[in-house]
Amino acid sequence: MSAAHEARLKLKGTDMKYMLLIHTRESDYAEMSKAEGEKRTGAYMAYAQAMQKAGVIRAGDRLKPVSTASTVRVSNGKTKVLDGPYAETKEQLGGYFIIEVPDLDEALSWAAKCPGASHGAIEVRPIWEM
C-alpha cells in the first residue's frame, strides 16, 4: 500500500462536504421528446444510486424551472419581490447534490459522472463547516 493511500485511509474521518450545482439549459427539456426526457431522468436516478452505493451522497434535489422562481431583497426595511431568478443566464441552476468525500479530486470525479456535466456544467463548491 502506498504511503499516499495509507494517508487517505487515515483521513477518512476528515472528509469534506461539497455541493455540486448543476447548471443546464432548461429549454433543452422543452425541446426534448418524452422518451428522451425519461432517458435523462433515468440517468440521474442511476447516478444518485451510484452515489448512494458509494456512501457519499448527503442530499440532492431537482429544482423547478426558473419561471417559478421569486427573488427577494430587503432594503430600508422594505421587502421587494422580483418575479424571476436572481440572474438571467444561458444555463440555469436546475438541481444540486451534496456529497461527502476525502478531497477535491473525488468531488471532481463525481461531478464528471453527473449526467448534467455532458449537457451543461457542474460547479463544485466546498461547504463551509460550522
Partner: peptide, 14 residues
C-alpha cells in the same frame, strides 16, 4: 486548503 485539493499522485487514469 479551502477547496480540499489533495496532496497525492493522481489515479492512473488522470
Amino acid at each position: 486548503r479551502e477547496a480540499g485539493i489533495p496532496f497525492r499522485v493522481p489515479d492512473p487514469a488522470d
